[in-house]
Design a protein around this nucleic acid. Structure first.
Ligand SMILES: [Mn+2]
Ligand SMILES: [Mn+2]
Ligand SMILES: [Zn+2]
Ligand SMILES: [Zn+2]
Lengths: 155, 155
DNA sequence: GGCTAAATTAGAATAACTCTAGAAATGCAA
DNA sequence: TTGCATTTCTAGAGTTATTCTAATTTAGCC
């Protein structure tokens, strides 16, 4: 049996920026909702949250990304994990068109541009849209969310 | 060979109301776009447009309805017809959630309530919603439509 | 280390479509 | 009418996105 000399690596500024916050947050959030931080869940959380910008992924695209990054995660686990993260409030599920489900790393109140040519989704912060008047919800129900999709096409 | 005495039936108020207009409109529209008014297409147009109220059907539900009404139409034809009607501007395609495509007989500018429990869609005329401020469409593109879905849940 | 529950996985199954290729209906011309 | 080309319809096969299943692996704990 060999003894590994696992020297602690030198600390690097590049690897410990603000961007790690949402990842650390994710780990804590997983603990909160009783999801064990497994190798697979951590790899996916890293891909989803480490680069801060808002992402809209499908199970398929995230799975490919995981493969490329060297993480071995099955597609079934990607589906499971995306749904678990969604239930934990770390992701939002979006279904606009084309029979694919997108998962959105931006969980703030916001809306979307949808490019009719490419299918690309782009975030619109809620404060950029002003809805002056909304109809009453039918009796016995209340409004839980208002989703606005602005479809755009080439001019 | 027998000669049929096809007496013209007595005119009935019940059968010639305002409600026939959209159906007649549909037939004309089909001619306009070079879709022959075949037995199948007429049967489906009848189901879709004859009862005036706004409908949100899936291929599956319309197919069942056709069967029950005694019309023999294959599911493939229901899909073809729904897409042809949509291309002809007689229907609008809606995809909200749950991976099913709905076809909307209301082609006026309008929005939807979506019941999160039952998945039921209900129309909201455009004038009931006032959007005061919209963001600029990205460069080189223009806004083609704004879709608003108001999600409701039991209070 | 050994136990137990939770998590992962490959592959089968399902749901909602779409495609294909042959049959039927239709339109038109001879 | 009858023949021929074109359109439409249809059953069933194929596809895609997703879920399920049941066996294996891993994690947390004593
Ligand atoms: Mn889901
Ligand atoms: Mn379509
Ligand atoms: Zn978003
Ligand atoms: Zn509608």
């Amino acid at each position: 049996m060999t003894i590994m000399h696992t020297r602690p690596r030198a600390f690097s500024m590049m690897e410990n920026t603000m961007n790690e916050r949402p990842f650390a947050q994710a780990i804590n959030r997983l603990r909160e909702v009783d999801l064990r931080p497994t190798r697979q869940r951590l790899a996916l959380a890293k891909l989803l949250f480490e680069r801060g910008c808002d992402r809209h992924v499908t199970a398929e695209t995230l799975h490919e990304e995981a493969q490329k990054s060297g993480a071995r995660v099955s597609l079934a686990t990607v589906y499971n994990t995306l749904h678990q993260f969604t239930d934990a409030g770390l992701l939002r599920e979006i279904m606009v068109d084309s029979g694919k489900t997108y998962f959105d790393t931006n969980i703030d109140d916001h809306h979307h541009f949808l490019c009719e040519r490419s299918g690309q989704l782009t975030d619109i912060p809620a404060h950029m849209v002003t809805v002056a008047e909304l109809p009453q919800a039918p009796d016995g129900s209340k409004i839980s969310r208002v989703d606005i999709v602005i479809r755009i096409c080439d001019q």
